[in-house]
Design a protein around this nucleic acid. Structure first.
Length: 455
RNA sequence: GGCGGAAUAGCAAAGUGGCUAUGCAGUGGAUUGCAAAUCCAUCUACCUCGGUUCGACUCCGGGUUCCGCCUCCA
């Protein structure tokens, strides 16, 4: 049983074999930090977090690198609008991003290189490309990559250079030798942050940042490179061109791209202004509910964000936790068919929806058998994909809710209801149940007494 | 125009050349003072038209519709 991953470049599932046995180098394109992260960003974070967790479960030592783009046109523009410095803006947004990740139970990457801290590597790579004849400085101080000098350009996206030119959506620019050429170094305008270089003051283009950082952190040739679908062209195509021309080595073995989060069947994005930030959604839904929602579809498929879908996800996660509330987990039972299926489906290109189905089958078995070892196994397998990390009671009490009631006030009402029930005053008892129900608080009676939960 | 991806029950979402996916919701029953949770049973499927096949939702071909990329984008 071995891991198979769908490689965007070959458009098929391939058996995964790391370059160095037992070690995996993985680079994922991170965020441009000019605003808060939205649910689309959350998907990339959660998907690749799940990939890393599974690779580690398989015993690989993973070096997970995810960059931060902390210099770019949008950042400059936003800082100016806000009347704050670029560092203040990016520093704030990076802190917010880390807070979002922590809330979502996303493990921090092993390295988070920032573009502004890799200027030497970036300039060196551009220099090499110019020296080797793959790039040229233009008269205005920009430096461009000569797309036609790389014969294999288009091999990742399956695009043909001639078709691209016919598309006529490329920037009109008489400074470039060819309309397809893309910028490696941008001459700075007045009042823009800049770094000195042999081509004059400027800053790097977006594509070269990733090539330089990935190469510096993981070497010229590494195992996995990931990102959102929209990055496969032109960003990743350009990375291949830059890196392979500069180093002369094959850049990446496996390309992974995750699908979009949609709103009303349209891509969620900042430019369309139809996005929900992670923070907004966390106000309404528990982080594990959001994580479940994102993993309940295959990572390459689109997911549609909606209130209904999140509510359904909440009920589903609740079913898993109900089993754990019913049976306190003990040490996980070893060598079960459940675990074998779970591993098998995860090894099949990270089929998390099928992995969930295994979890539900397991939950059903726990409900029937009351087997504490199986409950432990449910927790163990859930944890492998970043779910079921909480105690069941804590989970049910920590659902975001509109309730104004304090825990003490709720307990108070439960005591009052207990007395009413003892006196067979069921009218008052039901009144209290309804009152709490309106606040989103559910009461659960059992032989051991009454407990409550939110949601 | 070029390249790529989708169409599965009320909703969400996997998958398979013949064998119950799974979850939410619904229905009937057990259980409960009433509920919740749970268990048992149960109703809803594979866009369309052809072809291959003993047999296709699954393979092949033609349609239709939707989405993404080709410009910054996760």
């Amino acid at each position: 049983m071995s891991l198979h991953i769908f490689n965007t470049e070959s458009r098929q599932k391939e058996m995964f074999t790391p370059i160095n046995p037992n070690q995996v180098g993985m680079y994922v394109c991170g965020i441009t930090v000019y605003d808060l992260c939205h649910i689309g960003h959350a998907r990339v974070m959660v998907v690749f977090d799940t990939v890393v967790r599974h690779l580690r479960t398989l015993g690989y030592s993973v070096n997970y690198v995810r960059n931060i783009t902390d210099i770019d046109d949008k950042i400059i523009k936003r800082a100016l609008e806000n009347g704050e410095s670029i560092q203040a803006l990016t520093g704030r947004m990076i802190a917010e991003m880390h807070a979002d990740e922590m809330a979502m139970n996303v493990l921090r990457p092993d390295e988070e290189p920032k573009a502004t801290e890799y200027m030497d590597e970036i300039k060196l790579m551009i220099e090499t490309l110019v020296q080797k004849g793959f790039a040229y400085p233009a008269k205005n101080g920009d430096v461009y990559f000569k797309v036609k000098s790389f014969e294999q350009y288009g091999r990742l996206s399956g695009k043909n250079i001639d078709d691209l030119e016919a598309g006529a959506r490329v920037e009109v620019n008489n400074i470039k030798q060819d309309p397809m050429d893309f910028v490696l170094w941008k001459a700075s305008k007045e009042n823009e942050p800049s770094w000195n270089s042999e081509w004059g003051a400027g800053r790097p283009g977006w594509h070269i940042e990733c090539s330089a950082m990935a190469t510096k952190c993981l070497g010229n040739h590494f195992d996995i490179h990931g990102g959102g679908m929209d990055l496969s062209f032109p960003h990743h195509e350009n990375e291949i061109a830059q890196s392979e021309c500069a180093t002369g080595e094959h850049y990446v073995n496996t390309w992974m791209h995750c699908g979009f989060v949609r709103i009303d069947d349209e891509k969620m994005s900042k430019s369309l202004n139809n996005f929900f930030t992670i923070k907004e959604v966390l106000k309404v839904f528990h982080p594990e509910v959001i994580r479940y929602f994102l993993l309940a579809s295959h990572y390459r498929s689109p997911v549609n964000y909606s209130q209904e879908n999140l509510e359904s996800a909440r009920a589903s996660v609740g079913r898993l936790y109900s089993a754990l509330e019913l049976v306190a987990p003990a040490k996980a039972t070893q060598n079960t068919a459940f675990e074998a299926s779970f591993m098998a489906v995860m090894n099949d290109d990270f089929n998390t929806p099928k992995a969930m189905a295994v979890l539900f089958d397991l939950a059903k078995e726990i409900n029937k058998s009351k087997d504490a070892g199986l409950a432990g196994l449910l927790v163990k397998l859930g944890n492998q994909i970043g779910l079921l990390e909480q105690d069941a009671t804590t989970f049910f009490k920590s659902q975001p809710s509109q309730s104004e009631l304090t825990d003490e006030a709720i307990e108070q009402l439960i005591v009052e209801r207990k007395e009413a029930r003892a006196n067979k005053d069921f009218a008052r008892s039901d009144e209290i149940r309804d009152l709490l129900s309106e606040q989103g608080i559910e009461l659960l009676d059992s032989s051991e007494g009454t407990t409550w939960r939110k949601g």
